[in-house]
């Protein structure tokens, strides 16, 4: 892997920033230059969140240019559609098929896009789209908050970084009482995406 530009996105509270931190730290340990930047707006508060993570021998801009991201890791599917135009042609989209409707949708003022509409938005850029039920799997593991490490597991299959390095940086960032469950979620995410890949090929 020479370089990778990836966008991690979701809704405030889903653990996007921690996940992108862990990606950055794992890449640093593997010898990459790393820049990562979060755009939160005013939100910790249920707003749209996006992290840009860039790995390369030398990184200048912390922001990825639209249309140049190698991978989009989306924790919520509307957010996948919102940031889909950042993908380069043929890039990879990993989408948690979880729906958190914005208030305007609940008030009936706007419509939440259908799965087909979301897929169509992403297909403007790529056919490499993986929809996974991350929230459901995290809940089965016993804690829905492990969604972010589950998604990291999914992502790790596409990044040539050592599995042990991932486990080390996850362990470093997780307090003892939730360390094991997060490491399990990471493994479950790896397996999940490998299963989906085989299914698609």
């Amino acid at each position: 892997m020479d370089k990778m530009d990836l966008l991690v996105t979701g809704v405030g509270g889903q653990g996007v920033v921690l996940a992108s931190d862990i990606i950055g730290e794992t890449a640093l340990a593997a010898g990459y230059d790393v820049k990562k930047t979060d755009t939160l707006g005013m939100a910790q508060r249920g707003g749209s969140v996006v992290s840009h993570v860039r790995l390369a021998p030398k990184v200048w801009s912390p922001l990825i240019r639209e249309g140049e991201a190698d991978l989009l890791l989306a924790f919520e599917k509307l957010e996948a559609a919102r940031w889909g135009h950042y993908l380069r042609p043929g890039g990879v989209a990993i989408v948690n098929s979880y729906q958190q409707p914005p208030l305007s949708v609940s008030l009936g003022q706007e419509d939440y896009p259908s799965d087909d509409e979301i897929a169509a938005v992403l297909k403007r850029r790529t056919e490499n789209i993986y929809f996974i039920d991350g929230t459901g799997r995290a809940r089965e593991l016993g804690n829905v908050r492990t969604l972010n490490t589950f998604m990291l597991g999914c992502f790790s299959v596409f990044a040539s970084l050592e599995t042990d390095a991932w486990r080390e940086s996850i362990a470093r960032r997780m307090p003892e009482n939730i360390r094991e469950i997060n490491l399990n979620a990471f493994e479950a995410g790896r397996k999940e995406i490998e299963g989906v890949r085989i299914g698609q090929s």
């Binding site: 559609a81 919102r82 305007s104 706007e110 403007r124």
Partner: peptide, 17 residues
């Protein structure tokens, strides 16, 4: 040619918690 964002998606402004 920069792709523009997909049109017509519901916005997600920050809210009171």
């Amino acid at each position: 040619e920069a792709m523009s964002p997909a049109p017509g998606l519901p916005r997600r402004p920050p809210l009171l918690c």
